[in-house]
Nucleic acid binder design. Sequence first.
DNA 1: GTCTATACGAAGATAGAC
DNA 2: GTCTATCTTCGTATAGAC
Lengths: 185, 185
Amino acid sequence: MPRLTDARKELRRTQIAEAAVRCFSRNGLKRTSIADITAESGLSAGSIYAHYRNKADLVQAAARETLDKRDGTISEYAAADAPPSPDELLSRLIAAIDPAEARVGVQTWGESTTDPAIRDIVADTTDRMRAMVHDCVTAWLVKVEHHDPPHAREFATPIAHQVMALYQAELLYTALRTPAEETPS
Amino acid sequence: MPRLTDARKELRRTQIAEAAVRCFSRNGLKRTSIADITAESGLSAGSIYAHYRNKADLVQAAARETLDKRDGTISEYAAADAPPSPDELLSRLIAAIDPAEARVGVQTWGESTTDPAIRDIVADTTDRMRAMVHDCVTAWLVKVEHHDPPHAREFATPIAHQVMALYQAELLYTALRTPAEETPS
DNA sequence: GTCTATACGAAGATAGAC
DNA sequence: GTCTATCTTCGTATAGAC
C-alpha cells in the first residue's frame, strides 16, 4: 500500500477543492469555469482532471468540504461538563459562520434541488448536524436542567429543530448580506 | 395608451415565465436552456426574445413570480378579527408550500449569492414577507392577547424572526424531500 | 409578433509531449 | 503528474422571412 503517495494525492485534491471553493464563493457553482479554477489554484486543466473525473465530481468535493466544516465543534460542546444552553449554542454557531462558506453553502442548497448527488450530501450533512445539536441540547437538559435522560432526548427534538432552522436562516441572511467580491473579469 | 395591447403583452410574458418556472423546477436555473423553455411553452426562441431581453431577465421574472406568490394571504390574516397565533400562522404558511415552487425558491437563494439583481429580489420579497408576518403577529398580540399596540409591535419582532426562519427552513426541507422529476432527455 | 435557421462564443474535456 | 494546445459540444442570441 503506497500510503504516502495516497496522502500526497489527497493533499492535491484538497488544494484543488479549496481553490474551487474560493471561485464558487465569488462566482457561483455554474458560472465558475475550469479555467477560473486553474487560475485560482495555479494548476492546469490537465492536472485537475487527473484528480477529479469531471466538474460535477469537483463540485461534490467542494460541497462536502464546506458543509462538513461546522461539525467538529458541536460534539465538543455536548461533551462539556456544562453544555451551552440552546440560545448560547445558537449564538456560537452563528458567530462561527464565515461569509464565503455561507455563500457556497446556500449555492449548494440550490444545486441540491436538481442534482441527486448533491442532494444526498446536503441531506446527510444536515442530518448529522441536527443529530449533534440534538445531543448537545440533550446534554444541557440533563446536566444543567436536571431532566432525566429519556425525557430529555424527547424534549430536545423540537428545540434542536428550532436551533437548526434559526441557524440555517442566519446562513441565508449572511449570504444575502455579504455580496461576493466583484469578478475581476 | 394602448392599454389592451399592454395587457396582451403582459399575458404572453407571464405565459413564458410560468413555462420557465416549470423548467427551472425540473432542471434548475442554469441547466435550463432556452430550447427547454421553447419546448415547454410551445413558443419559439425568437418569440421569447421579443418579450425578454435575455435569459437573466427571464430568470428575474420567474424569481419574482415564485417569491411573491406567498404574499397575498398573510395580509388577510392580519386584518381578521381573530388573527392566527404564531404557531397557527406558521402551520398555514407551511401547508401552503408547493414543492415545485419550493425548489425554484431555493434555487433563487443560491443564485442570489452571486447575482446582484436576484439578490435584490430575494432581499425585497423576504423583507416584505417578514413585515407581513410582523403585522400579523402584532395583530394577534393586540386583538387576542390584549397587549397594548406600542409594546406589541416591539414584542412581535423576535417572534416574526422565528416564524420566518422556521418557514424558510421548511421551504428548504421541502425542496430536499421532493426531488424533481427525471429529465425526459 | 412569431417563426426557422444560424452565427458566435464559451466551457468541458482530451491528446500527447515532457 | 503536469503542462499546452485543441477538439467538440452546447447554448445564447440574432437575422431575416412571413
